[in-house]
Each structure stands twice: as C-alpha cells, then as structure tokens.
Design a protein around this nucleic acid. Structure first.
Lengths: 129, 129
DNA sequence: CATAAACCTTCCCCTCGTGGCAACCTCAAG
DNA sequence: CTTGAGGTTGCCACGAGGGGAAGGTTTATG
C-alpha cells in the first residue's frame, strides 16, 4: 500500500503521515525499489489510533507515549490513565478560560447597540480596563 | 519613555511591543538620536487596549481592526459588534469541541482501573474506533 | 512507443503568538 | 574608564499542520 492509500484509509494527509514517521510516532515504513513508502493494514490501524487521539485533543507528545503503551503488552493501565488525567486537567483549564471570555464578551455585545453611531461599550471596556 | 518602561506599564514584553509595531497594530514609535524607540502615555493606553483584547481571545487580525475602530471617531458601533460576535461564535464552537472531548475522556478515565495490569479501556477506545 | 496524468520523493517557506539567543550599540553610575 | 543595564536587529524554535516547487515513477491511453 502506498502513502496515498493509507492516507485515505486513515483519513490523515500524506504530509502528516510522513511527519509522524519523522517524529517517531509511527514506525519507519519500508520502501519500494523506487523509494515509495510501503504500508500494511497494521499501519492503517496505528494511524487511526493517532487520528482518534488527536480528535480527543491529545498532544503529539502524549500520542507518542500512548502509541508506545498501546504496543507494549507489559504496560500498566495507570500509565495510560495518568496521561489522560493530565490532559483532562489541561482541557478543563482551557474550558474555564474560554467560558470567562465568553461571559465578558456576551455581556459587552448585549450592551452594544450595533448601529451607525460611534458609541460602543465594547471599545469602552477594552480601552479602560 | 523607552521600550522597557512602556513594556512594564502595559505588561507586554518588549519583544511583543516591537512585533505589534511591525504588524501595524500600534503606530510606529519615533526614535531617539541613538535609535531607541520613544513612547508616550497614549502608547501605553493603546498597548493596554491590545493586552485586554488578547485576554478576551481576539486574534491579532481582529485586534488590528479593533484598534483602528477605536481610534476612528467616525466608526459605527455595528462594525465593532460584528467583530465581537464573530469571535463569540468561534469561541462557542471551540467550547463545544472541548466539552465533547472532556465528556469522552472523563467517561474513559472513569472506567480505567489505573493499576499495574495492562487492561485499559482508554487504549481500547482509541484503537477500535 | 510516447506522452500525459496521477502519484511519489525531498526540501523549504507560511501560519500564530511567543520565547530565546547572539552580536552589536548606547547610556548612566561608580 | 569600565561595567552593567538596556536598547537595536536578526535568526531559530515551538505545535500541528498547509502550500508548493522540482524532480523521479507508475499507469493508462492514443
């Protein structure tokens, strides 16, 4: 299987498949006589794992570890849980920050007429704080 | 006022003050004989405006427009409101995405023992989907 | 058989907001 | 006069990609 095929199957751009290989997240692909990367079903499986992990917001650093643990049958589930828990903490922090921003922004927008006049409480707030 | 002073007053690194100037977000500072950038109270004010806008998550592109509108007395508040509303929409989208991730992650972590055994529903989910 | 389209390779630059470092210049105090 | 603090420019890095050039390969078609 060439990179285009594996890319379609895992729904990851060829570009990123090459990059993941560089970063050691997926094993180095063997090459055809012409130097084309060759992939197996197993590679598709790994790439889907990576994709799903990205969808859950894990960083590439985390994913590298997760793939390692996934392939290591002697892992302990606590290692995986630690990575996930740390990630949850970070996401919750971001969530709170975003909620704070939204709270302020919604309040500002509600008080802005949005007409042709220049008076604008949004600019007021941004300038005075 | 030199860049270090204005940087302290607005709580923005000197680096970023120079960068904002490059990007045309703040006016080009005049220079002393030695080539040092010179700032006024007004510049501090603009930089604080930028800082506050960043804290509300606006992009630099948005901020450039906001600063322009702020300084333009002939603006209409609808222009400002449009920028803010678009930003709110984007933040809400991100918020939902983060909440979705957290929902899944919390569910997974709850079902993971986190012990010395290799069995791990987190890896299961990541690999099978 | 030749040619064109589709595919692969590596390499470099762009994003966005920021930090760090190097090399060099200037200013104020001891 | 020297020293240290602070200024100047310029380049490189992050993370997670995207875009595209320049060139080699494969495959289908006239």
């Amino acid at each position: 299987m060439n990179i285009g095929e594996v890319s379609k199957r895992a729904d990851i751009s060829s570009k990123m498949v090459r990059r993941y290989e560089e970063q050691g997240i997926i094993p180095k692909a063997s090459r055809s006589d012409a130097g084309y990367r060759q992939y197996s079903e197993n590679d598709v499986h790994i790439l889907k794992f990576v994709k799903r992990s990205r969808e859950l917001g894990f960083s590439m650093k985390d994913i590298k570890q997760l793939v390692g643990l996934w392939r290591n049958k002697g892992r302990s589930s606590s290692q995986v849980k630690n990575i996930a828990t740390k990630h949850i903490d970070e996401l919750e922090k971001k969530l709170k920050e975003t909620q704070e921003m939204l709270k302020t922004l919604n309040h500002l927008v509600k008080n802005c007429q949005g007409d042709n006049r220049p008076d604008c409480p949004i600019l007021e707030e941004l300038s005075c704080h």
